[in-house]
């Protein structure tokens, strides 16, 4: 079976000015560096990492909103058409995005109902007189009330706005939603509601999610598979259950150990991250994580580790990029 979405070796560079003036040195910032993943229909891939690690860029690459510098994205085995071309626009019906800031993603001059119906108008799906009916059905599905159809974005609460964005995304019955930090701008009390709504929609409609977040608790709750990014690269990926239970990469271990536990008396490994992530313009040699890694050895500084299957027969297709992951002493050191 071919995956719904398959990304192979995605790279994305940005040119940045490092100095000033006309002759300023221009540097290449590699925001995403050789990222590969697959998303199966109806499943969720969680993408985690610190801010600036290239998560959002990966999300945009997955949707074809920006073109990769190298690498490819295939949807149902077909290569992503050039951004903005008619086939690309046609493909939008099947893949949609949910944003961190729902107010910014909505046009504040139009009632939300009009905006919810807009995808149907754009793609000419259904007859115009059926648009309203479909909108009513989807609004109900995401928990919006019929009278909110005529409201303007600023008249709704943050959670309601996110439901509007979600409703708009669902109008053309997409198979894939890229959710870029969909709940981090919401009140904590609303976050759970939106997460439950997303899970519920997946159950009923069989949508696949690429769920981008820096919040490991939420990722753990929604994801079937997880990929951990550090400075543009995936350092560990695999099935969520297994990965959170036994994180292998020192970076993942640090992230997992930082998740607060409720009520547990069990002693867990505590691994604290030192320092800040280095500048993406000036990525460290070898393993990008080595300046912050407690297990760093000479090899880590010179040789970049490949993402390889985790030794020791773990379930769930675990892969990790670390030189020292196979060493027995590595586990004990924590």
């Amino acid at each position: 079976m071919t995956a719904l979405l398959k990304a192979v070796d995605l790279c994305r560079d940005y040119r940045v000015h490092t100095g000033r003036g006309l002759f300023a040195a221009k540097a290449i910032l590699r925001a995403v560096d050789g990222v590969s993943f697959e998303i199966e229909a109806g499943r969720t891939l969680g993408l985690v990492g610190e801010s600036g690690c290239g998560k959002s860029t990966t999300g945009k690459l997955a949707l074809g909103l920006i073109a990769p510098t190298s690498g490819s994205v295939r949807y149902r085995g077909v290569a992503m058409p050039p951004t903005g071309s008619p086939p690309w626009r046609e493909l939008r019906r099947k893949m949609q995005m949910v944003y961190q800031d729902p107010l910014g993603a909505l046009d504040r001059r139009l009632p939300v109902g009009v905006q919810i119906m807009e995808p149907l108008v754009i793609h000419g799906t259904l007859l115009p007189n059926e648009h309203r009916e479909r909108a009513a059905a989807v609004m109900e599905a995401v928990g919006l009330l019929p009278h909110q159809f005529d409201r303007y974005p600023h008249e709704l609460s943050g959670g309601q706005r996110q439901r509007v964005v979600l409703a708009r995304a669902l109008m053309t019955e997409p198979n894939l939603l890229v959710c870029d930090e969909p709940i981090s701008a919401l009140d904590v009390s609303i976050q759970a509601q939106v997460v439950n709504l997303l899970l519920d929609l997946q159950d009923r409609l069989g949508i696949a999610y690429l769920f981008i977040s820096h919040d490991l608790r939420v990722v753990r709750q929604v994801s079937h598979d997880v990929a951990v990014m550090y400075l543009g690269r995936i350092v560990e990926q695999g099935e969520a259950e297994s990965l959170f239970a036994e994180p292998a990469h020192p970076y993942t271990r640090a992230l997992v150990s930082a998740i607060p536990v409720t009520g547990g008396g069990s002693r867990r490994e505590r691994l604290l991250l030192q320092g800040d992530p280095p500048s993406p313009v000036d990525v460290p040699t070898g393993c990008a994580f080595h300046p912050r890694c407690p297990f760093e050895v000479a090899q880590c500084r010179s040789e970049r580790p490949k993402l390889e299957p985790l030794p020791g027969g773990h379930p769930g297709g675990r892969r990790v990029a670390c030189h020292r992951v196979g060493e027995p002493a590595f586990r004990v050191a924590a």
Binding site: L63, L65, R89, E90, L91, R92, R93, Q96, M97, Y99, D101, G104, A105, L106, D107, R108, E118, P119, I122, H123, V165, R168
Partner: peptide, 21 residues
């Protein structure tokens, strides 16, 4: 960051993005 990118992402052409939004 805003609404224009979102509408573009819905598959709208330039005429709709610039003229209507």
């Amino acid at each position: 960051q805003g609404y224009a990118a979102a509408v573009r992402q819905l598959g709208a052409g330039p005429g709709r993005i610039y003229g209507l939004h």
